[in-house]
Design a binder for these strands. Structure first.
Lengths: 337, 337
DNA sequence: CATTGTGCTGAAAACGTTTTTATGCTAATT
DNA sequence: AATTAGCATAAAAACGTTTTCAGCACAATG
């Protein structure tokens, strides 16, 4: 009553195991009668090939791995959803590993359990790991991180451009004192958005005041606290607008402003990034730069599969954001004095 | 420059492959010097064991599989997040398969790539599949679906109880004409909620009017349309309250009511299920029955691992919901006539 | 009639591990 | 001195497949 193997099928059908294998894998060399007989027996015995044996021999898994620290939140699920859809379309399975354990990550990446991997940048895979991956000829595509290696590709959201455009938009509304609520400084996205913001300020020849750069850690709570304490500690430096590192930060920011009696957008404009699904339900609905997450997921899988199948080289693909104007931003009114 | 195998390490270190294996797996039988020498060589060669070979032999993977049709939305990501956290804690990896391809599903479940599986009920695994799983002694836990088989367990949200409690709550507010917006009739949850609703009505000795049961398909759009056309087609049968099959349906319902000029909750109360994160941000904030998703994820993994490690039998674990009262429900006021 | 080709099937090797068993050596026991 | 015990290592079997190659029967060719 243990697992039924190819041997059992062979014995039961009165043929050799190679014949069974050929029948199951549609190798066109068998007598049709033999083949159908074998298939019939296999079905009757409820035979399912053991994948480990299969893979060990063939070396290919038709599986892609996605390694990430988390799947929580709209960004991730949209990404995973679109990646798996594209995988399905291309005849691959998607395998999501949610872990921070470096050991597990590397042994799965290098251990030959998947044909290629997608790696989310926050997993800080270091140069040594990358060297090991190169040595083993692992096909990899990084999300939001640029790797200079021919075996590896990247698909990144152009956060610099997004930060730049969002800031220019706020300037076009007449705002001058624009504060930035930063995310996590070790993350590529966060840094790039800030750089874009700074570039737009410089271009408009506005002074850059370091005080106007707050730390919100990409979280609602962090942003809420940062805004409150900033306004408390810097009376007379009230900004015209806040550019928040992501939508959650924007929500935290708006809540803080409301709690202090300010009106968004009439007193102060707030703009976020990502366009998570809460954005449109929030009150006021959020103006934000949409990150085309689904498209990113599709591209990343597509690129990886091309690398695997056509031996294509890895390259860097950039994705532009899209400004979605909603209710949280408003043209600057001169205050009734 | 191909992959480096245990043989390469053995040759390089001048020992046999069994010695290498023993050194790597901490089998306490080797001369410490030999062991450290082997480890040193392995490290130098960047050796990583091939998982397929390893699994083929040992038969255990320390991996759990989660099979689902989708990971989109707050329900799923909360679930996956909590499952992977619990897996980490117990020394397992979690492997998420997002697919609807029955072939892929069954070959992965039965193919020995994971030690146990969690199956989301919407994948309609039929009796034949289950028989095959039983035959192969697959350890499985189903989410929101009850399987009567000793090898398999279930962790379910007690939707019947939730439907019952929510309805009683609405009755306690003074509502009499309570409509139900049904989900998908093939889903266990959906049916159970409706049964609970009906039971509460019967208990209160209210007449059950089939007209009051709409089809919203668990979607915002579906619910929106259902409510609009119901009110249009049944003048004079305006309900006091709507019990929606899930929060998205509740949101669709409220939008429909608003668009027709009704006020929620003053004219009509609306209650949903799940407490997705949008619920508290919506206006009005949703009264809903919270599904303790994170706890469900934890329990399901825990149960599965106990089944694997302690040969425990599968059983059915029920999780109670929790009524969260917010702004979308209100005590019934007699209309000014 | 002897050779060559063809169509089908079986035997055996291979994939990379772990695990069981065998071997050679030294030290301890009789 | 001969057996035994114990230790460290090597050899070989096993896991479940796929794939390569050999073999056999029979038909086709010269």
């Amino acid at each position: 009553m243990g697992k039924v193997t190819i041997k059992d099928v062979a014995r039961e059908a009165g043929v050799s195991i190679s014949t069974v294998s050929n029948a199951l894998n549609d190798v066109d060399v068998l007598n049709p009668e033999t083949k159908s007989h074998v298939l019939e027996v296999a079905k009757r015995l409820n035979y399912v090939p053991n994948l480990n044996g299969k893979l060990l021999k063939s070396g290919t898994t038709k599986m892609l791995g996605f390694f990430t620290t988390s799947v929580a939140g709209p960004y991730f699920y949209t990404l995973v959803e679109s990646m798996s859809r594209e995988c399905d379309r291309l005849g691959y399975g998607l395998n999501v590993f949610v872990t921070t354990d470096k050991q597990i990550i590397m042994s799965n990446i290098l251990g030959g359990r998947v044909d290629g991997v997608v790696i989310f940048e926050e997993l800080r895979i270091d140069d040594q790991d990358i060297a090991a991956m190169e040595k083993n000829k692992v096909k990899a595509v990084f999300l939001d991180r640029v790797i200079r290696s021919e075996g590896m590709g990247s698909v990144i959201f152009d956060s610099y451009e997004a930060g730049y455009e969002a800031t220019r938009y706020l300037i076009s509304l007449g705002h001058r004192k624009i504060a930035y609520i930063s995310g996590v400084d070790t993350m590529f996205d966060s840094v790039q958005r800030k750089e874009g913001y700074l570039a737009a300020l410089r271009e408009a020849q506005f002074p850059v005041d370091e005080d106007y750069i707050l730390q919100g850690y990409f979280e609602e709570e962090g942003s809420y606290n940062a805004v409150k304490s900033f306004i408390h500690n810097h009376p007379g430096k009230l900004p015209d607008a806040f550019l928040a590192g992501n939508d959650l930060s924007a929500i935290g920011c708006i809540r803080a402003l409301k709690s202090l009696g300010y009106d968004v957008p009439n007193d102060i404009s707030v703009v976020g990034f990502d366009d998570i699904d809460i954005a449109q339900y929030f009150s006021p609905p959020l103006t934000t730069v949409r990150n085309q997450i689904a498209r990113q997921g599709m591209l990343v899988v597509n690129h990886l599969v091309r690398m695997i199948q056509n031996k294509e080289q890895g390259k860097v693909e950039k994705l532009a954001g899209e400004l979605i104007v909603r209710g949280s931003s408003h043209i600057k009114l001169s205050r009734p004095s």
